[in-house]
Simulated scan of single mutants.
Amino acid sequence: MKIVLIGASGTVGSAIVQELGQRHDIIAVGRNSGQHQVDITRSDSIRALFERIGKVDAIVSAAGGLHFGPLSEMTAEQFKIGLHDKLLGQVDLALIGQHYLNEGGSITLTSGIVSAEPIRYGANASAVNSAIDGFVHGAAVELQGRRINAVSPSVLRESWGSYGPYFLGFEAVPAQRVALAYSRSVEGAQTGRVFQVW
């Protein structure tokens, strides 16, 4: 399969490359690195990416920024960081990308555990991840001959040093285990699923 992977150089993205790259042709894409670059907050950048790479069998997104901070100090502009980047960026990737997806192809987005298990300072992340899960459920009903899923990981073991204080009491998961969920989404038959790696 020809798979375009957004966020290929990140911790999760690198694990996905290691897992799926054994069996498929991975087109590595990043904001500033990879074979191609894209800014998922801009529709024109997403369209230009697909015009360059053409039709694909799978679109995988392991990208998207969020805002973490106390609700009492949060501004609308800070909240919009997650809305414009992780949520609308991935939604736009799916809306545009569906037209470049081969028959039987799939789209895999990334949400996260705080959609179901909120944390302090994570209101933006909870809202965004919940919306991504909801979009996948709704979009799966309409994607004819194609599939869409999301992977919802817990905090990564590799990222515990940075994010551990937000996730006390949570079990960290290795990126390699998270990558297996992307494999299930891309290489499996299910659609409208949120693969939880908790």
Rank of each mutant, 00 (worst) to 15 (best):
R193C: 06
S126I: 01
Q190K: 12
G7N: 05
Q144C: 07
A127T: 13
S154D: 07
T41L: 04
R47L: 14
L109A: 08
V29P: 01
G169A: 09
G82T: 01
I96G: 06
V194N: 03
Q35N: 11
V38K: 08
G64D: 09
V29N: 07
I81C: 03
V29D: 06
G104Y: 08
L5V: 11
V194K: 03
A94E: 02
L83F: 07
M74P: 01
A58G: 12
A172P: 15
E103S: 14
K55N: 10
S162Y: 13
A76L: 11
G169C: 09
I6N: 02
V60P: 00
Y121R: 13
G104D: 09
I6H: 04
R47E: 15
E171K: 15
V194F: 01
A116M: 13
G64N: 08
V17I: 14
L101R: 10
A150P: 01
L5N: 11
G105P: 07
L101H: 10
G134E: 01
V186F: 03
T108F: 00
Y182P: 00
W198T: 08
P118I: 15
R47K: 15
Y166N: 07
K2C: 09
L87E: 01
N32F: 12
Q196H: 13
Q18I: 10
R146M: 05
T75S: 15
H137P: 02
T41M: 12
D44P: 10
L143K: 01
Q37G: 12
G89H: 02
A28F: 10
A179L: 05
S33E: 15
K2W: 09
I53W: 09
F79L: 06
I107K: 02
W198P: 13
G188A: 03
A116Y: 07
V12I: 15
L156E: 07
E117F: 13
Y163L: 14
W160H: 08
G138Q: 03
E77C: 04
I46R: 11
S33M: 08
A172L: 04
L87G: 05
P118H: 12
A172S: 14
K2G: 07
G34E: 04
I81T: 14
G89W: 01
R177C: 06
G30L: 10
T108Y: 02
N102S: 14
D44E: 15
A48D: 15
Q37C: 14
A15L: 14
L66Q: 03
A127H: 04
R147H: 05
G192C: 02
E51S: 15
R146E: 00
Q144I: 13
A179D: 06
G161D: 09
H36E: 15
I26S: 13
M1S: 11
S9P: 09
L66C: 06
L95P: 03
P118N: 11
I113S: 08
N124L: 03
V173D: 05
L5D: 11
V38S: 11
V173H: 08
R146P: 00
V141K: 11
V141W: 05
L49K: 02
R193M: 08
A125D: 08
R52H: 12
P153G: 00
Y163S: 03
I148L: 04
G188E: 03
